[in-house]
Amino acid sequence: MMKKAENIIVGISIGDLNGIGSEVVLKTFEDPRMLELCTPVIFANARILSFLKKSFESTSSLHGIDKLDQIVIGKINVFNLWKEGVDLNLGVTDDKIGEYAIKSFVAATKALKEGIVDVLVTAPINKYNIQSETFKFPGHTDYLDQELEGNALMLMVQDNLRVGLLTDHIPLNEVAAHLTEELIRKKIETVKQCLIQDFSINKPKIAVLGLNPHCGDGGVIGKEEDTILKPALKKIFEKGTLVFGPFAADGFFGSNQYEKYDAVIATYHDQGLIPFKTLSFGKGVNYTAGLNKIRTSPDHGTAFDIAGKNCADYNSFKEAVYLAIDIYNSRNQYLEISQKPLKTKEKQL
């Protein structure tokens, strides 16, 4: 049974409190129409957010709760995850603030797993100050991959532009060693299933970029295209997936070839994210595809250089909320259709 729009519960992890996360979250929900689309639950502390709200001159009206069974539909709920005061120094990295960022993220993920919130939208964290004995993950995605069933894949989304990655947060000099037929098959299958169930595209077309300049020029400047990518893509295509490539990355976006495909898969992080962020005009969203739950985030970081200056652009965070809701609805429709038995006419006797 489909939920009413405002009954979709959006869990929000607050991210690094010394960054711009709180500002973009609060400004996103200043528009009362947002509460007609969903009910937010921010995992943080109402006193801290009220203080930050004043400094950002935000008009958001916060509703503090001490238990998750106290969520009020149509309110900006702030779940008081901790009671103590926190010393903020906006724009400065702080290991203690990193602990609160992870505390918020872990609690929000737990609520997502338990079905208390329907989707998760994460504000930016600082990857340096979150590391501890209890949290040794490079970022959000790796932790979610452990906690939620599936095969996590970073998919950057802005309208019909969708860019996924074969490898993400690894050093550039290790990318080639990570490219295997099994990895390529798994990532393409993840993207294909995501496009079908989360974006309602029945027969998606997927493009894959080459690793080397000019796709290796026949082996002159790299052999991975001929020895790994082309054979793998051929096998996948022959099994019915509409996958094409590898394409030379330098001209693929500049010539607008990406518009012919429902998703583009880059071989490494910057190959995909540089053109994506150039084309998405500050409205891009990071979606973690391939999991049994829905998580999105803005496509930017903590932006310490402008934290506390009341000038952060909140459009990417707002788009992340929109996308999470859209995917939630698309996935529910897909599940309803896929689980509904086909009707057959009774045989005439």
Rank of each mutant, 00 (worst) to 15 (best):
P213W: 04
V243P: 03
E259K: 14
E225V: 15
F244D: 11
G272V: 02
I236M: 06
G210R: 07
F304H: 10
G282T: 13
A303F: 01
N310D: 13
A320S: 15
S255C: 10
A232P: 00
V321I: 14
N310C: 03
S255K: 12
C311Y: 01
F276L: 00
T296Y: 09
T278V: 01
E238T: 13
D270R: 10
I325H: 10
R331F: 14
K230T: 14
L233E: 07
I221Q: 01
E259Y: 08
R295F: 04
D326H: 04
N329M: 09
T278E: 05
I221N: 06
I274G: 03
T296V: 11
G216R: 05
A263W: 02
G254K: 13
V321P: 03
D262S: 13
G210Y: 06
Y328G: 00
A266M: 03
P275R: 02
L211A: 09
L323E: 12
G219T: 08
F252E: 07
A248C: 15
G216M: 04
L242E: 15
D313Q: 02
N315Q: 04
K260A: 13
R295G: 00
F317W: 02
K293C: 05
A320Y: 13
D326Y: 01
D270L: 15
E238G: 01
V220W: 02
A320V: 08
Y314W: 06
G272W: 04
D226N: 12
I306K: 02
K230N: 07
T241H: 11
S330M: 03
K260E: 15
A248P: 14
T296C: 02
G282Y: 04
Q271N: 09
G240M: 06
T241M: 14
N332K: 13
N292Y: 06
F253H: 01
N329T: 07
S255F: 14
A289I: 15
S280E: 15
A312R: 01
I306Y: 04
L273A: 05
H269D: 04
S280K: 13
Y268A: 14
Y258F: 15
R295L: 09
Y261P: 05
D305Q: 09
G216K: 06
